[in-house]
Design a protein around this nucleic acid. Structure first.
Lengths: 187, 187
DNA sequence: GTCTATACAGTGATAGAC
DNA sequence: GTCTATCACTGTATAGAC
């Protein structure tokens, strides 16, 4: 029987609530209720609502970044494309609620935490771009034409497939979803 | 000098405001201000805030659906893949604000208008899936393996690239962005 | 058809007891 | 460290004058 720190209870409740109602729609009252603590405890553990969700979004990108680094370290070429796709889908399915929040927030530029999140987001896109470039190079093709936009397209393809999977076709196994994404890729 | 109906002024102001602050963050006060009308006029033209944004989101999918039907009518095979990609990017760049709203709302299942939007969303995904299937068939490959998840991946790829483009690399021409997406596709 | 004024519920945040 | 009680404020929506 491990005791979960209040801070983590709050973050988990915030994720669950915002997945349903969006960040602005998630009230501190409801987060406190779901966490099983009083609202005052929210403000003891975090300075503000923005601080809570800044942490949630940053955690999401951090988890993805760590998973991508590990996947890229273990494979190259086409295997790296597959490894990166699988790793991303695993992060999504580990926490679909968090994924929904990040997906909804990723293109908002006016958030208090936007300045902190933007570089992390850009760093994640670079992983996908570099994997695409390495694969193109391995096939003897030019890498010049592959920009961050292609990286964002790769990430978008995985996210689109992953969320469609988790929300509407949850019975499918993960490898099958990965194949649907990779079927789009050049070979 | 054409007179814009108040209803359209309100919808346009709602789109602009929600693109910055999200739907929940867009207040009726600010929408009225930006539309240049009184708050009471909002409630004369629409029964509620939800009704306004239900209309905004539905309009977004309708525009995309119309553009996709036209694009598919004019081209087949690889040309259809390109036509659909370009058409989607055109819809995005015609109204990036609306695109940001729809992108943020597309995976929310608790909205008042979710029941209306879900089938429209699914209908749009079918277009992408069918184009992928037709292209596979034209190359003599099996279409059985291509499901809605692949369709969602295609849409996700275009949306990811398109939003990266419009938000961070707006100087690039549209055809170049389309090529970045199509470079991911089998050939 | 659009305005002003207002009702009233819900919001993020704070203070102080335990 | 967590609680209860309460604050000032903003939100959606309504009523009625023009």
């Amino acid at each position: 029987m491990t005791r979960t720190p209040t801070r983590d209870l709050i973050l988990a409740a915030a994720v669950r609530t915002a997945a349903e109602k969006g960040i602005t729609g998630a009230s501190m009252d409801e987060i406190a209720d779901r966490a099983g603590v009083a609202k005052g405890s929210l403000y003891y553990n975090f300075p503000s609502k923005d601080a809570i969700f800044g942490q949630v979004v940053r955690d999401g990108f951090d988890r993805l970044d760590i998973a991508l680094r590990q996947a890229r370290g273990e494979a190259k070429g086409l295997s790296a494309m597959r490894a990166v796709t699988v790793a991303t889908l695993e992060v999504l399915s580990d926490s679909p609620d968090r994924a929904k929040i990040v997906a909804a927030e990723i293109f908002r530029t006016d958030r208090p935490w936007a300045d902190v999140v933007a570089p992390v987001r850009a760093g994640v896109v670079v992983h996908y771009r570099e994997v695409l470039q390495e694969y193109a190079a391995a096939r003897g093709e030019s890498t010049d034409a592959i920009t961050d936009i292609a990286g964002a397209a790769f990430l978008g393809a995985i996210a689109g497939a992953g969320l469609e999977w988790l929300l509407f076709h949850k019975e499918r196994p993960l490898p099958e979803v990965a194949e649907q994404v990779l079927a789009l890729m050049p070979r």
